[in-house]
Each structure stands twice: as structure tokens, then as C-alpha cells.
């Protein structure tokens, strides 16, 4: 229990520290803005091809499963395509897939980069130069990753919607375009977009905070960096799942 308390306490302190730094009024924009742009490039633009591919695959998977459902239950799959897209991809799989992609391509390398910097004493060197490590290393990553994850989530949902419609022509269950759009608009509510964005922003935030905490918050040796990276990946994944479950409750209430 004391270990859990310590971890939770440190996590809370670290989150508060990052939040207060991000909201500092006299931010050194000359240093931090280029770092935000760099993070948007690394966590967003560079992941565009993978996001497009995943979006296409998700659409194809939905169509494939609907086709199998039709075979098992005799349900007309074309009548449920839009609903399946809205519930499975827009609300759930899309944000989660983007979070996992960003975690693998950005979160893990962040732990390695920050952990190596901590182990080699670069963080103390930053502090000796009156440079706040959280402000200069973590805050730009936090902002950039949150922007990227939310943008990629919108993109993956859009690509998946298009891809699933395109795949219906391969399986012979293609609805009329207007019927498909009607299904989508009937299944989605006004709350879906803000909730999707809120969820993806939280995913981006937790991935960055977990990576920064594991790499930066405590003294670390070079041989411990790989262990910290593994912990960050598992921790972030579980956190994202927990957030996902919370949002299911929110959808239910709304």
C-alpha cells in the first residue's frame, strides 16, 4: 500500500507541476514553440501514413465482421454499417488505435531520450543553467502530443468511414450513399465530437506524462532506461483503457 501511495503521490505532484508550468504566463516562446512544432511533426505528421493505413484496416475489419454477422444471424449488414462505424470506430477503436500508435512511436522513444538525459546528467546541467527541465523538455511534448493525437483521431475516423464504405463494394453489401450518411448521423450525436476530442486529448496527455515521469522524475541509471520504457508502455496503455471505460459511462449518461 505504501508503494502505491508513493507512486500515486508522485504522479499527482508531477501532473500538477506540468500543468502549472504549461500555464505559466511568461513562457519562453522562443525556446518552447519550436519544440511544440517539432513534437507535432514527430507525433502527428510523421505518423500520417500509419494512421491512414490503420484507418483503412479498421474500415475493412468492420465490413468483414458485419458480413460474418449477416451469415450467422440473417441480419441485413448494410442497414447497420453506419451504426457499427460510429460505435466501434469513432467512439472506441479510432482513439485507442491512435493512442497505441503514438505510444509506440513517440512515447517509448521519449522515455529513452529523457532517461538517457537524466542518467548522463544533462538534466542537472539544464538546471545549472537556470533552465526548468519540465518547462523546456516536457511541456512542449505535452502540448504537441495532445494536438497530434486529437488531430490523428479525427483523421482516422474519417478514413475509416470512407474505407468501410469502399470495402462494402467488395462484399456486395453496399448501402446507398445517402442511407449510409443517414445511418451515421443517426448513430452519432452532437456530443460525439467533443467527447472524442476530450478522450484523445487525455490519451495524449497521459502518454506524455507517463513517459516524462518514467524518464525524468527520479534518478535513473543507464541500465534502468529499458525497464522504465517497458513500464511506461504498460502504464500508459492501462491508463488509456481506464479513461476509455470512464468515457463509456459518460456516453451512457448522455
Amino acid at each position: 500500500m505504501s508503494v502505491t501511495k508513493t507512486i500515486l503521490g508522485q504522479w499527482t505532484l508531477f501532473t500538477i507541476a506540468i500543468t502549472s508550468v504549461v500555464m505559466r504566463r511568461k513562457a519562453t516562446y522562443a525556446i518552447t514553440l519550436p519544440l511544440v512544432y517539432r513534437q507535432v511533426y514527430l507525433a502527428g505528421i510523421r505518423l500520417l501514413p500509419a494512421t491512414l493505413f490503420i484507418g483503412f484496416c479498421l474500415g475493412a475489419i468492420i465490413v468483414g465482421q458485419l458480413h460474418m454477422l449477416a451469415g450467422l444471424s440473417g441480419v441485413d449488414p448494410s442497414a447497420y454499417l453506419g451504426v457499427a462505424q460510429a460505435i466501434a470506430v469513432v467512439r472506441e477503436l479510432g482513439p485507442l488505435a491512435v493512442a497505441l500508435l503514438v505510444l509506440a512511436r513517440v512515447g517509448a522513444p521519449t522515455v529513452v531520450e529523457l532517461g538517457n538525459a537524466r542518467a548522463s546528467g544533462e538534466i542537472e546541467a539544464l538546471e545549472s543553467l537556470a533552465i526548468d527541465p519540465v518547462h523546456s523538455l516536457v511541456a512542449p511534448r505535452l502540448i504537441g502530443t495532445m494536438i497530434s493525437v486529437s488531430s490523428l483521431t479525427i483523421l482516422i475516423s474519417f478514413i475509416s468511414i470512407l474505407s468501410s464504405y469502399a470495402c462494402t463494394f467488395l462484399t456486395g453489401i453496399a448501402p446507398f450513399p445517402m442511407d449510409y450518411l443517414d445511418q451515421l448521423s443517426g448513430a452519432l450525436t452532437l456530443w460525439d465530437l467533443p467527447l472524442m476530442l476530450a478522450k484523445s486529448l487525455l490519451f495524449g496527455a497521459f502518454i506524455t506524462i507517463s513517459a516524462a515521469y518514467r524518464g525524468l522524475a527520479r534518478p535513473i541509471r543507464l541500465d534502468e532506461v529499458s525497464q522504465c520504457t517497458t513500464r511506461c508502455i504498460v502504464e500508459s496503455f492501462l491508463l488509456c483503457l481506464a479513461v476509455d471505460v470512464l468515457f463509456v459511462a459518460v456516453y451512457y449518461v448522455l
Binding site: E113, A117, S120, G121, E122, E124, A125, L126, E127, S128, L129, A130
Partner: peptide, 17 residues
């Protein structure tokens, strides 16, 4: 901190990137 400087040993802990 701005008025105090530290020069570390073994390469000075420069930022490798």
C-alpha cells in the same frame, strides 16, 4: 541560478542532440 554556473567533469554534460 542565473548568477551561478557549474562546469561538470568528464565532458561537461553537453546536450548531445
Amino acid at each position: 541560478r542565473e548568477e551561478t554556473a557549474v562546469v561538470f567533469e568528464q565532458g561537461g554534460r553537453l546536450f548531445q542532440q
